[in-house]
Design a protein around this nucleic acid. Structure first.
Lengths: 386, 386
DNA sequence: AGCATTATTTTCAATGCTCGAAAAAAGAAG
DNA sequence: CTTCTTTTTTCGAGCATTGAAAATAATGCT
């Protein structure tokens, strides 16, 4: 569902009858969850009774969305209509969470945000946090994360207790999958593997438009799937992970012939990675070699993925998406060398450079859905289905 | 659901009220789909009104189930109660389907079966076939199969046309998953990967007790997941597949130091495989080496699987299940070397030697379900849920 | 202005599934 | 023969949903 819709449109969209739609909307109107929009339609008038559009009542609820990245924290305030109200960004360094407890850090940001929009304080319903790493099974914290000093303390439940609000952790890979569905209508009902290539390598998957599981499922540890036994040293401490060949630090390491057992660089500046791509595009041997190795790792990873799960589309996002063409020959070759790839053919591989958009969209849609499903639970079905 | 149940038991099992259960059962009784069972209860009488048990009416429908294997074809006649009525077995050789078209072969078996139970002819509702290989997307035939000369012709739809019955193909790996759920109640709601190790290597997966997808999905091509790029020659024609290290022919090849690029043996006698295991258990170097290679291939395959999908249980079935202890050190080591394996811990790995039982059970339950869902479609919910 | 046309929205009675409570049924225990 | 216990059925009510008809609110034409 997108924006304001007439009752008739909603009826045909949901498959319900007009009668039901009237009843449901009347319910939701009295509960203040939706509002009639009397916006003047800019398009030429048509015959017939004009439609009255309804939309989610923006002030019915608010949510705070954190996106925690290796080098940046972004906090967004959104309303029940899915509109971005305000946003705060903070730089992160590897030492940030050594100096301040994650819970405190998040709580401070939240106060700063609410100070700028005091009206949202009353209707703030939940806090959702996008993180990288492996979640605790109970969702209260992280077992491991590439963000230094973030794993360990159950900061989600601490923040929950401190603020009296539901706080949920969301694995970035899963949000990628969720967001990809919403950003491209063609992917909404498809089986899509969305791969992030950048400072890490992550993947979220959808299956016929559905995301499996509740917690961090739907995300995979694709980046830490083994590529070569006992191979290159990965940021996670294991050896031979795909990430250890395809993440930015790995390409850098290989381009400069640093031994693959050397510890990964904590962070690679965007310009440096960009420069490597340009050198590779210009034909520089060591750079192309590094991207070939990256493509080979991703290619064999995808070929192994295909043996288990056969998506119709593969979406590459993140800084590495720009290097897709550099890696594509190796990717294609690896897929072609597998039974499924050679029989079913390779899936469509699409590059979409910006990864923040799908992550934010995914976090937003997931959180709005949680508000509908959990906070407004015993109500007739609202659900932003589509 | 298992066997005859009282209405009260069904009510609490399904969560419906007694009133609804009475109504539903009365519907199903008049439609002849269930029958009241007046069997004398062998257990000691208790106080209160005695329960009247209801069960599926066995004569309401019949189904013919084919299990096509590399060296054997088995045809079973089952009734709506899930009871095995009759069974015919036929040896297969690599040349069988060169001599007779698959459709004709199946039709002949079916005639032989129905000749012995003519009463079933009228109530025969569908034919279900368990196959190995990769199905056509439309489910009419196979794109590729380890069973010689089976791929190519759309024999499922040919048989459907010839007999005027719905004929469905089911990938063996998927049935393994379905069957494993039903055979062990502990696995019924779990996430299970069921791995067949024998003449091939196959895998079916369930996710929280659900099997994904409609057609051949839920099955994987685990056996043809790449293990080593450009590695050992597999029966599928590709190189480096897990199967090319872990199937019986691969262990044989490695135990006798045949080059791994040598063409796979078309079939390995059970005794020969058994003898290899005994030699390995006795400490024979070349035999243990071969099983180590097999364990390593399966172990890295599982470790790569874990990066995408994290089952609570892994079930090993088939002839290779007996060799699990020979392979387990390498399997454990490979899993321990992966991030997910080391953080979440290795899943429970269980060996269950007989694979025909879960395959048959899976085929049976799936087919009964199809009869409920498709043939008896516009009825109130029957569904053998549980 | 008045009437026909058109599309949206609401009203209304009916359907179908479900439930809780009460009643009926069928035997065991005393 | 009565009391007790458990299963099963009956009954009336609740609820979401529906199709058809009515009401509504505009435009287009004479």
């Amino acid at each position: 569902m997108q924006g304001a819709q007439s009752r008739t449109a909603l009826a045909s969209l949901t498959g319900l009858s007009h009668a039901s739609m009237t009843a449901i909307m009347s319910d939701l109107l009295t509960q203040g969850l939706v509002a009639e929009v009397t916006a003047d339609r800019p398009d030429g008038r048509t015959r017939g009774r004009p439609a009255t559009f309804v939309n989610f009542a923006r002030t019915a609820a608010h949510a705070a969305l954190f996106e925690l990245d290796v080098n940046r924290a972004r906090l967004s305030l959104i309303d029940y209509g899915g509109v971005l109200v305000d946003r705060i960004e903070t730089e992160l360094t590897p030492g940030t969470f050594a100096g301040i407890a994650p819970c405190q850090f998040l709580s401070d940001r939240l106060d700063a945000l609410l100070a700028r929009t005091p009206a949202a304080r009353k209707t703030l319903r939940r806090v959702a946090i996008s993180v990288q790493g492996i979640l605790e099974r109970d969702g209260r914290g992280l077992r491991w994360s590439p963000i230094q000093h973030l794993a360990g303390a159950p900061f989600a439940s601490e923040l929950c207790d401190a603020r009296g609000l539901p706080v949920t952790l969301h694995k970035r890979g899963r949000l990628l999958a969720e967001g990809a569905r919403w950003l491209d209508p063609a992917l909404h009902e498809a089986s899509v593997a969305t791969v992030f290539v950048g400072s890490t390598v992550a993947m979220g998957v959808t299956f016929r438009g559905q995301i499996m599981g509740r917690g961090d499922e739907g995300a995979t540890e694709f980046g830490h799937m083994n590529h070569v036994p006992n191979g290159a040293l990965c940021r996670c401490g294991m050896r031979g992970c795909i990430e250890a060949y395809a993440a930015d630090y790995a390409v850098l390491r290989n381009a400069y012939s640093v031994p693959e057992t050397a510890p990964p660089a904590p962070a690679v500046p965007a310009q440096q990675y960009e420069m490597l791509m340009q050198r590779a595009e210009a034909g520089d041997r060591s750079a192309t070699h590094a991207f070939n190795l990256a493509g080979r790792a991703i290619g064999f990873g995808l070929s192994r993925l295909l043996a288990i799960y056969d998506p119709s589309h593969i979406l590459i996002v993140g800084p590495g998406a720009r290097a897709l063409e550099l890696m594509r020959p190796e990717i294609d070759q690896a897929i072609k060398a597998s039974l499924v790839g050679s029989i079913n053919g390779a899936p469509h591989i699409i590059a979409h450079r910006d990864e923040t958009e799908p992550i934010f969209k995914g976090l937003l849609m997931k959180t709005l859905n949680d508000i509908d499903q959990v906070d407004f639970a015993p109500l007739p079905n609202s659900g932003r289905a589509g």
